[in-house]
């Protein structure tokens, strides 16, 4: 079984702070990390590979330094890694990104399952997975909380939706996007870390993928960000202090009082 895991390097949004005077994001010192949801995607691929045999190939699109997240995946146990990097890829929206990623999947060839995290924490779009599936014309199963069965050309997975869970059977090849319910990602191993450090990671650019400039990067992106603003800072609420009994009574007033204001 051949797995491709699509990952992304993102700024750790939990570390992003707002410069209150300028109203901008303070990005300085914000670490770049492997998108947390993608760790689950890597783990899921590794588990099935360990059970069924085969290989896990991890792919990301990004600037040269995005290689770091590929090495993390290799340290966890991925077999191969490919970096899609080219100045022409810059400024890509989800459509251009998935054009690039889908082409990489085709070039890798003989892939049975593409796995990616539910969404990336910087953009939170959750669009790349389905869009890759559409580009490849493969079926997709999104919001997967558990992969029940894999092999013999089919996958059975649980897809968690608002009011329940669909047990879905899909034919392979398939693209799935994974929730955090699916597993607990392993830590890297020492041997993995050493392998990761020494591994030569191939870099594929626009020519390697045989893509036209109009399909990738900013030029291949129908959407554009025209304005970035910081949400209005809230002035803060009414703060109550006092004995536990007094506080409790005030809280109950609010809980039961309905429309008091």
């Amino acid at each position: 079984m051949r797995f491709v895991v699509v990952v992304k390097q993102v700024p750790d949004t939990a570390e992003v702070r707002i410069d209150e005077e300028k109203g901008t994001l303070i990005r300085e010192g914000v670490p770049s990390i492997l998108n947390p949801f993608d760790e689950y995607a890597i783990e899921e691929a590794l588990r099935w590979r360990d059970e069924l045999g085969g290989s896990v190939i991890v792919v990301t699109m990004g600037p040269p330094q995005a290689e770091a997240v590929l090495r993390e995946a290799v340290a966890m146990g991925a077999d191969e890694a490919i970096l899609l990097s080219d100045r022409a890829f810059a400024g890509a929206d989800t459509l251009a990104t998935s054009n690039t990623l889908a082409r990489a999947v085709s070039r890798i060839g003989d892939v049975d399952v593409v796995i990616t995290g539910k969404q990336a924490i910087d953009g939170d779009t959750a669009q790349t997975g389905p869009s890759i599936a559409a580009s490849l014309d493969w079926p997709q199963v999104t919001f997967v909380g558990k992969v029940r069965q894999l092999g013999d050309g089919v996958m059975v997975a649980e897809r968690y939706v608002e009011d329940g869970c669909e047990v879905i059977r899909a034919s392979l090849p398939v693209v799935i996007t994974l929730l955090k319910d699916a597993n607990t990602p392993r830590l890297p191993s020492l041997r993995g870390k050493m392998k990761a450090r020494k591994m030569e990671i191939p870099v594929w650019g626009i020519d390697d993928l045989g893509l036209e400039p109009g399909k990738v990067g900013l030029d291949g992106s129908p959407t554009r960000v025209v304005k970035v603003a910081t949400p209005e800072a809230s002035s803060g609420g009414e703060i109550h202090r006092g004995e536990p009994g007094e506080l409790a009574a005030l809280i109950v007033d609010r809980l039961l009082g309905g429309e008091v204001e």
């Binding site: 459509l95 790349t128 389905p130 869009s131 999104t142 919001f143 897809r159 939706v161 959407t223």
Partner: peptide, 21 residues
């Protein structure tokens, strides 16, 4: 929703148009 976010990216790709989540 889980439905809209599954469906719309697929359609947007077929139509080669932009989608904002």
């Amino acid at each position: 929703t889980t439905t809209g976010r599954d469906l719309m990216p697929r359609i947007a790709k077929y139509l080669e148009t932009g989608l904002t989540a």
